[in-house]
Design a protein around this nucleic acid. Structure first.
Length: 815
DNA sequence: GCTTAGGGTTTG
């Protein structure tokens, strides 16, 4: 037998050759006498294959203390695959021998070993140690003995046409009718369902159980249910099934091709390959039958008056109307083509917000639930996700106090009623936040909120304005404006992993707790993480000025600070600076410029003295470069629209000099250039006017060490094991696919960064919605003496089909 | 405790 099971504690046969580490596997080596030992971390399904009879894929991971555990794909063929499927479980440690080594076609995608192990034929062996090794942090050394499925409990399932009165059986069936569990007159909740199978017989089942979670979790007609220990009772002239002692139920999606994942609250249940097959067979059979409509669920956008339907929605607020009626205010992110009735409620009876934004209100449906559903409605809370079964869309009208007849535009407002009783499966079921049934709806809700509450909100709203908010005191400043992310982008891209590694380090992915435990020092780690939070929330603060010479970093000065610097410098410089300038350089020429801008307050037209180089003046290129004194910040910005390069200066004690940092030394269009105070040795030489006059030639002439825009953020990453604070700096531009210069100068770039962050860390949402990203982290210590390890995200980019935003000149705001 | 419900032609 090619799969040999060894009980924990016993020695296995010793014909497996030398055990070599997984990382040593190579196509260029002869592994005939080698074995590989590892834990089965993934075990795929047994798949029938025409060429090999059976095929099964599994992933083997190196066992041992190393935090960087190599893993390798393993492909088993024929009988070996079948035996492996029965005898081996995820978590088992196996030794594989007699394999051949091939190139793994999925290595790039799964980041596992570039080779895979092929096991087939007489020589291939798998030795299994049954019982999981204790996890790294477990204290108990006791090995758990586990039954091998093949020897474990065997269940047989009775077809519905073979039921005998009084017999306790196990059954599979397709749900053709169901009621959510409801409180019976006795001591238990009662669920009622009707199932069918290939025998075509339809059988009613009644489940009494005082625990809600033990009831079959049926969400839709067409679901497949497996029930253990139900007893056939004769009733009228048919048999019905009732649960007996030891009853358990699994429910599966009934869609052909969907994952076969049992829905159950039970932590231990038997589920084997034959169960998977049974589910798939029933799905196929059901698809070929004229069974009741599988899905009565509609979105509000598809509802027509007088319809009965099932609604999947989120509760926003609720209100007690009277003892027999509760109002639920719900939405599903879609817009109903018919106007929705807003049912009035006493404000002190409302739980949750009493009103919403005008746009939001248009999407909110009023659901009135009656009688037996009222106690259930009392238990649910605003924010909960629900499915309401057999809801009726009732056309009605809004009564206005000043007229006895409804106004024409107010008729046919829809409200929704959940009538009393459980007929037609009427009821309400809460859905968990991570339920697949609500994912589409949540995307629609996100899109709505991003679209309406970000782009149309009031700029002064301090809650929503937290991001690229305009720094204070900046009239007319269009920088750092409020973003408007496109909802369609979010809709499509949130399904993807929105960031991916671009490096070619060959290291195994680690969990964050493993990263924290691993040794420091110049290493790269690959992680799969979510972005839990980030700083700064006001993204203009993420933009810094960096000196590549002294490596200092400083904040970009806000407009208020610059205003002050300009007004201080201009306080005593209103008159012609040439008159008061001791020994002006011989290449400087002055002229008057009239500022007619609406920006000048008093007097409305102001004359400014500007200087330029004699060379430029003689060439008629005055527009190329001017030096100005005594202007306000606004006037400087205004001049920068008409002159290519504007250098603001101040005159003090007869000397003309650049404004003090952090004032920009140069304005070029919308762009501003800053200097490092420490590294600049300012002078005033005539710039070389031969070539292009740009920030580089001007900074050289002025003896200025220019500062560079950089993006610096702190991310808090999380995975199932831990959280980790990391910096995003050196590779921030490639991460966002946006240059810091562009982020400093244009809205499109800022929006793009905002979008990426909103995608990774949805602002209105709970953690469950956050996408995962693959990231590369560099661990480092700033110096030998530092005890603390820091991490930076590197070689990681947001996934994008858009071209990078690199050129600030493309700003849609540029004139 | 050993019952509860046993779909259904749909109130407000």
């Amino acid at each position: 037998m090619p799969v040999c099971v060894i009980e924990e504690g016993r020695k296995g046969p010793d014909h497996q050759g030398t055990i070599i580490p997984i990382s040593n596997i190579s196509t260029s080596r002869n592994h005939a006498n080698h074995s590989v030992k590892g834990r089965v971390v993934q075990k795929g399904p047994l798949v029938s294959s025409s060429s090999h009879n059976f095929i099964l894929k599994a992933v083997l991971q190196e066992v041992g203390p190393s935090p960087q555990r190599a893993s390798i794909n393993m492909v088993l063929l024929g009988t070996l695959a079948k035996d492996f499927s029965q005898a081996v479980s995820e978590g088992d440690v196996v030794v594989a021998s007699g394999f051949s080594v091939g190139k793994s076609p999925t290595a790039l995608k799964d980041k596992r070993h570039p080779c895979n192990l092929m096991l087939s034929g007489e020589d291939a062996f798998i030795h299994v140690r049954v019982g999981p090794a204790p996890p790294a942090n477990a204290t108990s050394p006791k090995a758990v003995k586990r039954k091998i499925p093949a020897e474990g409990p065997k269940y047989s399932y009775t077809k519905l046409n073979n039921l005998k009165a009084g017999e306790v059986v196990n059954v599979y069936g397709v749900v053709v009718f169901f009621k959510q569990p409801y409180m019976s007159r006795g001591s238990d909740f009662c669920s009622s369902l009707k199932i069918t199978d290939q025998s075509q017989l339809k059988v009613s089942c009644t489940i009494f159980c005082n625990k809600l979670e033990s009831h079959p979790q049926i969400l839709q007609i067409g679901n497949i249910v497996r029930m253990h220990r139900v007893k056939a009772h004769p009733y009228n002239d048919t048999l019905t099934l009732l649960n007996t002692f030891g009853f358990s139920a699994l429910v599966f999606d009934g869609t052909v091709g969907a994952a076969v994942e049992p829905r159950t609250a039970s932590k231990s249940f038997h589920f084997a390959e034959e169960d998977r097959r049974a589910v798939e067979e029933l799905r196929l059979w059901a698809a070929s039958q004229a069974l009741p409509r599988a899905d009565a669920t509609l979105t509000l956008s598809a509802v027509q008056p007088k319809m009965y339907f099932d609604l999947t929605c989120q509760l926003l607020a609720k209100a007690t109307i009277d003892s027999m009626c509760t109002l639920l205010r719900v939405w599903d992110g879609t817009r109903c083509p018919h106007a929705l009735l807003k049912v009035a409620a006493e404000p002190d009876m409302v739980e949750g917000p009493t009103s919403f934004s005008e746009e939001h209100e248009k999407l909110i449906a009023s659901v009135l639930v009656y009688d037996n559903h009222v106690p259930f409605a009392q238990q649910i809370k605003p924010g909960d996700f629900l499915r309401i079964y057999n809801l009726r869309a009732i056309p009605g009208w809004v009564e206005t106090p000043d007229t006895s007849s409804p106004r024409s535009e107010e008729v046919n407002h829809l409200s929704f009623h959940l009538h009393g009783g459980t007929a037609y499966g009427r009821g309400i079921r809460p859905l968990p936040d991570d339920s697949p049934e609500i994912q589409d709806m949540r995307r629609a809700m996100d899109a709505f909120q991003v679209h309406h509450e970000v782009s149309h909100h009031d700029v002064n709203d301090s809650v929503l304005c937290g991001a690229w908010a305009t720094p204070p005191c900046c009239p007319g400043n269009v920088f750092w404006n409020v973003p408007h992310a496109a909802p369609c982008n979010l809709l499509t891209s949130s399904r993807l992993i929105p960031a991916e590694r671009t490096c070619d380090h060959i290291v195994e992915p680690l969990t964050l707790s493993e990263v924290k435990r691993s040794l420091p020092g110049g290493t790269h780690h690959h992680v799969r993480v979510q972005l839990r939070s980030y700083e700064p929330r006001r993204l203009h603060q993420a933009l810094k000025l960096y000196c590549s010479k002294c490596t200092s970093m400083q904040d970009v000065p806000d407009e208020e600070r610059l205003d002050n610097i300009f007004s201080e410098a201009g306080a005593d410089a209103d008159s012609d600076p040439m008159q008061r300038w001791n020994n002006p350089p011989p290449w400087i020429r002055s002229d008057d410029v009239h500022i007619h801008a609406e920006l000048t307050r008093n007097p409305p037209v102001r004359t400014l003295n500007v200087s330029t180089s004699a060379q430029l003046l003689s060439e008629g290129k005055v527009k190329e470069l001017i030096f100005i004194t005594g202007t306000t910040l606004q006037e400087t910005c205004h001049l920068a629209a008409g002159y290519h390069n504007v250098v603001p200066m101040k005159l003090s004690e007869g000397h003309l000099s650049l404004l003090d940092p952090p004032a920009p030394f140069l304005f070029r269009g919308r762009k501003r250039f800053y200097r490092c105070q420490q590294c600049s040795k300012t002078s005033l030489k005539e710039p070389n006017t031969d070539g292009v006059l740009d920030e580089k030639t001007i900074s050289e002439a002025l003896g200025v060490q220019m500062l560079k825009f950089v993006l610096l953020m702190k991310f808090r990453l999380q995975d199932a094991t831990d959280t980790l604070d990391v910096f995003l700096w050196r590779d921030a531009e490639s991460f966002f696919n946006v240059s810091a210069d562009a982020a400093a100068a244009n809205q499109e770039a800022q929006d793009s960064i905002r979008e990426t962050l909103d995608l990774l860390c949805p602002p209105w949402d709970r953690a469950g919605e956050r996408p995962w990203m693959d990231a590369c982290l560099r661990a480092y210590r700033p110096s030998e003496d530092d005890a603390q390890t820091f991490y930076q995200i590197c070689h990681t980019s947001k996934s994008t089909s858009k071209p990078p935003i690199l050129n600030p000149q493309h700003s849609k705001l540029s004139k």
